[in-house]
């Protein structure tokens, strides 16, 4: 079974604090991590390989240092990695990102399943997975909570999707693209054996020249239909904290209940 996992390197927000004066990000040092949702995608890919055999390839589009995210994925046990990095890709929005990934995946050849995280924690759009599936013309199964069944013989898969109202089970034909949510599994750590392999593995970096049929006007900033025109701080929350002081829980609860009723939101 040929499994492809798409990952993104994102800033590690656990280091991020907000400057209360300006409402902007303060970062202590700059570290990057694999997007947390993509960790679940990598783990799911490895589990499928362990069950059905085959190969797991990770792919990432990003600046040169995104190679570190790919190395970490290899350190977890993925077989191969491909980096997509070129100044021509810089500034891609979700459309251009999906387009570029689709060209690279077409070049990689036959595959059975593509795994992505449900969204990246920096952009939060969740649109690259569906965009990529559409550009490749394959079935998309988003917000997957569990792979219920996979039958390589008949080329079918059944997954449980997490929706607002609950969950649903969807059956589909392979190849398919899945975006996964947290808690589909518990991602493993890197292992010494695989880290050593990662240090020896030569990870190819593909540029525009490596993507057959790439339309230069559809790449990067130029190929992105959306354009950011303004960046601003989110409006601050109005009003100061009203800390309720009272004699005991009953009294505090009574005061709070009155105040909330007075807000006329219930």
């Amino acid at each position: 079974m040929n499994i492809i996992v798409c990952i993104k390197q994102v800033p590690d927000t656990t280091n991020v604090k907000i400057n209360p004066e300006t409402n902007t990000l303060i970062r202590e040092g700059v570290s990057s991590i694999i997007n947390p949702f993509d960790m679940y995608a990598i783990e799911e890919g490895l589990r499928l390989k362990e069950k059905f055999g085959g190969k797991v390839t990770v792919i990432s589009l990003g600046p040169p240092q995104s190679i570190n995210a790919l190395k970490e994925a290899v350190g977890m046990g993925t077989d191969e990695a491909v980096q997509l990095s070129d100044r021509a890709f810089a500034g891609s929005d979700s459309w251009a990102t999906a387009y570029t990934l689709s060209l690279a995946i077409k070049k990689m050849g036959e595959f059975d399943i593509i795994l992505c995280g449900k969204q990246a924690i920096d952009g939060d759009t969740g649109q690259v997975g569906p965009g990529l599936a559409s550009q490749l013309g394959i079935t998309q199964l988003t917000y997957v909570f569990k792979i219920v069944r996979l039958d390589p013989g008949t080329g079918t898969i059944a997954v449980e999707r997490l929706l607002e109202e609950g969950r649903e089970i969807v059956e589909a034909k392979l190849p398919a693209l899945l975006t996964v949510v947290k808690n589909i599994n518990q991602p493993r750590s890197t292992s010494l054996f695989h880290i050593r392999r990662a240090s020896q593995l030569i990870i190819p970096t593909w540029t525009v020249a490596d993507l057959p049929g790439a339309d230069p006007s559809s790449l990067g900033l130029k190929g992105s239909p959306t354009q950011v025109i303004k960046i601003f701080s989110p409006p601050k929350r109005e009003g100061a904290l009203d800390l309720i002081k009272a004699d005991g829980a009953e009294e505090a609860a009574a005061i709070l209940a009155d105040k909330i009723i007075a807000e006329k939101i219930l």
């Binding site: 969740g126 649109q127 690259v128 559409s134 917000y143 929706l163 959306t226």
Partner: peptide
């Protein structure tokens, strides 16, 4: 919603238009 984001990503991609999520 889960369905809205699933659908919008597919439609925008196939139409080659911008989508703000």
């Amino acid at each position: 919603s889960a369905r809205g984001r699933d659908l919008a990503g597919s439609v925008a991609s196939l139409l080659h238009t911008g989508l703000t999520a």
